[in-house]
Design a protein around this nucleic acid. Structure first.
Length: 266
DNA sequence: CTTTGGGCCTGGACGC
DNA sequence: TGCGTCCAGGCCCAAA
């Protein structure tokens, strides 16, 4: 809906989110026409007719609120940081309570060299992400496979929750050295990542357990995870004696929680 | 070069 | 009820 629209008014209500907004962001965007909207990893990319591209990340709590022409736009709340008024009458508001999001502006010709974009690995759902590709990227890596698949240079889009879920589905221990995930294991892990992400997308994404929308915002609901957040429970299809195995375990890797089943994952 | 760990930030859960 | 404390997350980046 933004493609083809002119950004009549750009209202930036604070100097920064995760990183400072470009000092000239307002002047470069205001009056420009958005000619193309795209995405790379979790970055939204909006190209303008002034040969700039807006790089927009929602962080973890960011939302894009869209008001159709004629809709009443509420007075800005304290987390409504940026607002675009389009010539179509639509209004776009970037809301981000935790401020892990960011916006940057880059000449379109230089986009591929932008520091936030240039080292990003293959899209997880694309054909370029395959068993052999993953296996090659893991060669020589001594880190645990869980941390490796969360490294965006290996594959983008796999965050903490989906890393645990994918490894469970693939039957691979999160503690396994990344370099040992080769051949069939790599194949299986790629398939698991794709399935988990597709299912999550179909389910409307995952809402953080501590993140509730106050106004009945649609499109979000808690995904039902196989292992994430379920320490002590039986994993799906579990046939073992929980009193003996202690069920799903939680461990910490790189300061992040990992959940897994030691019996099903090697 | 690779790997580790810190930090950003808020609000919900929990305990007193 | 009202505090304080802890924790979660995506992801960059400095340090090791």
């Amino acid at each position: 809906m933004i493609e083809g629209a002119v950004l009549n008014r750009v209202d930036i209500r604070r100097p920064d989110l995760r990183i400072p907004f470009p000092i000239d962001m307002k002047s470069r965007l205001e009056g420009a026409r958005a000619i193309r909207a795209g995405r790379r990893s979790k970055y939204l990319l909006i190209e303008t007719d002034r040969d700039d591209t807006l790089i927009w990340h929602l962080g973890m709590s960011g939302q894009v609120r869209i008001y159709a022409p004629g809709d009443a736009v509420p007075a800005p709340g304290k987390h409504d940081h940026v607002q675009f008024d389009l010539d179509t009458g639509a209004v776009i508001v970037f809301t981000d309570p935790r401020r892990f999001g960011l916006m940057d502006l880059c000449p379109t010709a230089e986009l591929q060299d932008h520091r936030l974009i240039r080292d990003i690995g293959p899209e997880p759902l694309g054909n370029a992400f395959s068993g052999p590709v993953l296996a090659a990227k893991l060669k020589g890596k001594t880190v645990a496979i869980k941390q490796a698949i969360m490294d965006a240079r290996v594959v983008c889009g796999v965050g903490n929750i989906y890393a645990s879920e994918s490894l469970f589905r693939a039957g691979i221990s999160p503690k396994r050295r990344a370099a040992t995930v080769q051949g069939g294991r790599a194949e299986k892990l790629v398939a698991a990542i794709k399935t988990v992400l597709r299912e999550a997308i179909a389910a409307g994404g995952s809402t953080l357990k501590d993140h509730r929308t106050t106004d009945g915002e649609l499109g979000y609901f808690q995904h039902n995870f196989a292992v994430y957040g379920r320490a002590g429970e039986a994993c799906p299809g579990c046939d073992c004696d929980i009193s003996k195995t202690r069920g799903i375990r939680r461990l910490e890797q790189g300061g992040r929680s990992t959940y897994y089943c030691p019996r099903k994952q090697r």
